[in-house]
Simulated assay, not measured.
Amino acid sequence: MSPAPVPPHGADRPEKRRRLRELLDRAGHERVLLTTGPTLAWYLDGARVDVGAGAAPVLAVVADGRGDVVHCAVNEVDRLLAEELPDDVDVRPVPWAVPPALAAARDLPREDDLALELRAARAGLLPGERVRYADLGRACAEVLTRALHEAEPAQSERALAGRVGGLLLAEGIDPLVVLVAGQDRVLLRHPVPGPGPLGRRAMVVVCGRRHGLVANLTRWVAFDDPDPATAEATRAVLEVEADALAACRPSRTLAEVLEDVARAYPRHGFDAQEWTRHHQGGPTGYAGRDPRATPDAVDTVVPGQAFAWNPTAPGVKVEDTLVLAPGADPQVLTCDPAWPTVTVRGLARPAELRR
């Protein structure tokens, strides 16, 4: 695999600052305090803003789209200046015992006040982000290809998860989520790895983060021929995904798109309530789902946005990270040419790996 690309600091920054300034002008604010991992990583052009998956950011930014001030834990300053932060910020050290957000001015509007607007601002991917995202998606896909080509029925779920996690880390990718279900647990929708063997059929789910962006994908491996019912359900769930992609048209709300996804299940032979038994995914980018599509989600589809839908039914699931653009075929980012595929409405989709 190729080495992880270095964030091209400055490549997308002017447009990100312009988007933020426009957002603040519409809201009637001069500045905003940015505190969450997804927004900070976006605004700082892919900087690693924490020191562990799930950890709180080690910095906060008072941002106005012109001259940004980074309040950062004193023990992180040297690393961040040398390796992460763009040159156009003013860094102010904060004692390690003080949360960076508390060190900033307290009369500022907070991210929570502008959460919907900030998600919209980071939704349309910029050129530098597209390059980094494609590199990340390909690396994650190649990791699963390698790990599942090496997998054996007697291997434990935990051993396979460890192998996948190690390969991701070696590529500079944070394994935010690694789920594994062996044959006895494939009916579980979120199978945290257990001690049992893979058996004759297994599923692996990965959410991998690099330079702030998160790639999401699911792959299946089978050590014998699947039964006809499973094969038919797999084909049907791929059709549900195709309907979800077709429903992602600019300016539609996520709630409207989800309504189409829900209607797709019975149209392709599933129970009409199947969509209620697991979340269906939604936009992705600087968070695994940014946000998750729900019946109440008012976020709208933005041109050039990334999505990871994950339609699922008992024993079957499909998931990839794709970028959608009006008038163009979806670009599958989590793609490895070595993985077997089937064609669904003109788009190559992952098939089960037969071993």
Rank of each mutant, 00 (worst) to 15 (best):
G46C: 15
G166P: 01
L24R: 01
V32E: 07
L322I: 15
A287Y: 04
K317E: 14
P8K: 10
R277E: 13
A348V: 09
R210K: 09
L168M: 00
V51P: 01
P250V: 03
A53V: 15
A120Y: 07
A308Y: 00
D12Y: 03
L126P: 02
G52Q: 10
P266M: 13
D45L: 13
D224S: 06
A101Y: 06
V62T: 02
P326Q: 01
G10Y: 06
A121P: 02
H268G: 04
D227A: 12
L102P: 05
A293V: 08
D50Q: 11
G281C: 07
R163Q: 07
G212T: 06
A287H: 04
D299I: 05
K16F: 02
H190D: 13
R19L: 02
L213N: 10
G46K: 11
P191A: 15
C140L: 10
E84V: 11
A236G: 10
E152T: 15
H149V: 07
L187E: 12
T218K: 14
V51C: 00
C72R: 03
A297K: 00
V70K: 02
E352W: 12
E352K: 12
P95K: 13
V61I: 11
V94N: 01
P5S: 14
P197Q: 03
P109N: 11
P350Q: 12
R219K: 10
R200S: 03
A325I: 05
R235W: 08
A154G: 11
P127G: 03
V205H: 10
V323Y: 01
V261H: 07
V261C: 08
T218F: 12
